[in-house]
């Protein structure tokens, strides 16, 4: 008994690494499945990244092919698809963040002003619905709602004069990015507002009272009381978003791709897939791995930059 008691104190007796491991064996056992899974499906593929520097040799496996150095990187950087894929990825990613990131913040601030509890609940429930719709279904909905002929929403946009009468929103490439971005806002805005609404519900009511006494009107209270309460959450989510700037979701872009929009819709992730599973010709495994590794390194760089800037400006960061 007394021995058990001593192990409880946080400082505890001094143990070696092995002793500590034996002491925590139950916790290690609980972590084991997660550690094994991550090892197999995340770290083993990381080891396989060396394929980017090797010729793929079917007989010898991924680690056995001839060492090629930076050949595949050079092939990508000097090839015609480099500029296309990087530009497309950045255009889609930056436009997405520009609209998708502020939308839930604004929505949360608006919903938070509603005092009619029942209406507030109703709006909240409804704006969450699109999150549950799969990408396949979302893209199908775009295809029917924005069809050039008989698409109810494309007709509406034309009636309102927002797009020209002859516009083909699904086929013409200049609309691709907007379709992608606004369908993303529609789908994610409500769901992503949950975290901001949660942060807003934590705002101390006395701050509101104090602001009122100081003569702040409703709008000023939103700007000076509520918005500052969201800043830490905003910064963390912004950094996390920056870390995946080149990971423009394969899912939706791939499904929205057609022969008409391909030169604006081919992003890095879809390019990797097309190299790996080409419709004609042999798969280019090494080149695909090299392109994937390039994405990873760039993403990691952006994450670090975002983290650094955020720490400098606001003092909050991921690491």
């Amino acid at each position: 008994m007394s021995k058990d008691r001593t192990t409880l104190s946080a400082a505890g007796p001094k143990r070696g690494i092995v002793g500590q491991f034996l002491h925590d064996w139950q916790l290690w056992l609980m972590l084991l499945p997660a550690i094994v899974y991550i090892f197999i499906f995340c770290y083993m593929p990381m080891y396989g990244v060396q394929l980017a520097f090797r010729k793929y040799d079917f007989a010898k496996g991924i680690y056995g092919g001839e060492w090629m150095g930076l050949t595949y990187f050079k092939q990508y950087f000097t090839g015609p698809m480099f500029k296309t894929t990087v530009v497309n990825t950045f255009v889609i990613a930056v436009t997405s963040i520009l609209f998708s990131f502020p939308a839930p913040i604004v929505l949360a601030l608006i919903i938070n002003q509603v005092r009619q509890e029942r209406w507030k609940r109703t709006v909240q429930t409804v704006v969450y619905i699109p999150y549950f719709i799969s990408t396949v279904v979302l893209v199908s909905m775009l295809n029917v709602l924005f069809a050039q002929k008989g698409g109810v929403l494309s007709d509406l946009l034309k009636t309102l004069g927002l797009v020209p009468q002859k516009a083909n929103l699904l086929g013409q490439k200049q609309y691709f990015v907007w379709m992608y971005v606004f369908s993303g806002v529609w789908q994610g805005m409500g769901w992503n507002s949950i975290i901001y609404l949660a942060a807003l519900s934590g705002v101390d009511p006395s701050l509101h009272e104090a602001a009122k006494i100081d003569g702040a009107n409703a709008l000023q209270r939103v700007i000076h009381v509520e918005f500052p309460a969201l800043v830490p959450t905003i910064m963390i989510l912004l950094i996390m978003n920056m870390g995946s700037i080149l990971n423009v979701g394969f899912d939706k872009v791939f499904l929205m791709q057609n022969t008409l929009n391909k030169n604006v819709s081919e992003v890095i992730s879809t390019y990797v897939y097309h190299l790996m599973a080409p419709t004609t010709g042999a798969p280019q495994f090494s080149l695909a791995t090299a392109v994937g590794l390039f994405t990873n390194v760039v993403n990691f760089g952006f994450l670090m930059i975002g983290n650094f800037i955020s720490k400098r400006i606001t003092g909050t960061g991921l690491m």
């Binding site: 995340c42 593929p45 080891y47 396989g48 394929l51 990797v272 495994f285 695909a288 791995t289 990873n296």
Partner: peptide, 26 residues
Amino acid sequence: KARNPVMMYFVFTMYFSGGLVPTYMV
């Protein structure tokens, strides 16, 4: 005691991965 290193082991995979082809190979 090993909490932080184990956490790093997991978090690292959020920002770095082998990519599509190596994962497929595994």
